[in-house]
Design a protein around this nucleic acid. Structure first.
Lengths: 242, 242
DNA sequence: CCAAAAGTGTTAGATCTACACCCATGT
DNA sequence: ACATGGGTGTAGATCTAACACTTTTGG
């Protein structure tokens, strides 16, 4: 099935959705000591974009966000947080639409439904990088991780959405046990510290960090991890179950 | 003009608005050492509701929220914060609509546009109680302040919206200089402390509170306030201009 | 034995908490 | 004079930041 056939099929069902309302999700993962985001490139589009979608008439918005995520990552049970609505009147103008579309391949007229002004609800998700299978769908040419510090050209206000998501992530870092969603089952204290450092963007002191985290009583110390390196083997930890 | 004439006029213009998207505002004021909220009772409706409205096609959502507030309070320059979206599929079911409407006076069929499922963006506003003139409009039978601790029966999920607004208010209390929006130009340290105590719901120590607040260097001490009471006159303060 | 990284101790400073005391005001 | 409420001081506890030291590991 071609991209435009998919599109027409989608548009024919557009009454299923709430008009002019979309969801955009910032999916955070952590790998190689880098905070990463999953981005999409749609077929025939020039710019990268956040994975997003629409809300069905009889679907909770949280449910809609979750479905989008499950489709894009292959995971269920994802940590999701709604963080802000993006509703400037000019966020999806024809001009920014033009930038988004590959003008010579797609007739804007066919997109009447999509071309309207959209208000978008921003969610961020925290996932275990190692468990995700980035999954393009029929509209999507590619689906890749990007380092937060090295993002490609993005459509619309998606850069701003990402920045706000990061802000919220930082604010929630302490109160919401964010590590437990971004790290694999077991991890070293160093892994956790790197995660915090990359999210916060500041270096932390090893000893004080360890003391503080352990004092929260949320970690369980497992066996040591022997990497073969010529130094003391670090303990592995996992988050205690509630 | 009668309520239903107003309504028909409104509905005839409904294409001006984004469908199925609304705004609900929790307007906080502080008076008599009580945190209060401005609520409306629509003509011919049974329950009280948050002041709300719709978003015009070419209007920012923040702008829309601001207009609603200005109309209801007579104030401009209001402190506004978007705090959450309420998007459960069943938040505006026919059943809850029925509860909201005075069933024998209004035919639901006339409300097709309004009867759809709505997603609502929650804003909270902080206003100087003494400056507000609660202003009913043509749809509104009354517009009154209620103590947060003593709310009337509310429509839809408005009670939940208020609770979430309160939560956000508490979280933002320290970081966003909330006092400057809820208090009049000048106030005593006691006023400020009462405000904090009612928002947080916990008593604070007089001396420590004063020290902490003054250490922030955001207050300017003015002259003393002689109330005629048989005790030392408290200083008046005002927030320093940025 | 050594380098590298992990783990633990310790101490000075800042901040928070609770108590105490003094000061101004009108009766 | 004194009751009342406002302003300030201070000692102890707690939290934080920065430093130093010890332990484990493989070469």
């Amino acid at each position: 099935m071609s991209a435009s056939e998919d599109l027409f099929q989608f548009l024919s069902q557009k009454d299923r959705f709430i008009p002019q309302l979309s969801i955009d999700s910032v999916i955070f993962g952590f790998h190689d000591n880098q905070l990463k985001i999953l981005l999409l490139k749609m077929k025939g589009m020039k710019l990268w974009a956040l994975p997003g979608g629409y809300v069905e008439q009889h679907e909770d918005i949280d449910g809609a966000a979750l479905h989008i995520l499950e489709n894009r990552t292959g995971l269920s049970d994802i940590y999701l947080e709604q963080f802000r609505v993006f509703g400037k009147a000019d966020r999806t103008t024809k001009e920014s639409m033009q930038l988004f579309l590959e003008a010579n391949k797609v007739e804007m007229g066919e997109f009447q439904w999509m071309m309207k002004r959209f208000v978008s609800i921003g969610y961020y998700a925290l996932v275990d990088f190692s468990k995700v299978t980035p999954t393009p769908d029929h509209f999507t040419e590619s689906c890749e991780w990007f380092e937060v510090k090295n993002l490609p050209k993005l459509a619309f206000d998606h850069y701003e959405i990402i920045q706000k998501a990061l802000e919220s992530l930082r604010l929630n870092l302490d109160s919401k046990l964010i590590g437990s969603n971004l790290l694999p089952e077991t991890f070293t204290m160093n892994d956790l510290q790197s995660l915090y450092e990359t999210i916060l963007g500041t270096p932390l002191r090893r000893n004080n960090f360890q003391r503080k985290v352990l004092s929260l009583n949320i970690l369980e110390r497992i066996e040591k991890l022997y990497t073969g390196a010529a130094n003391k083997a670090p303990y592995l930890y996992k988050f205690k179950k509630a």
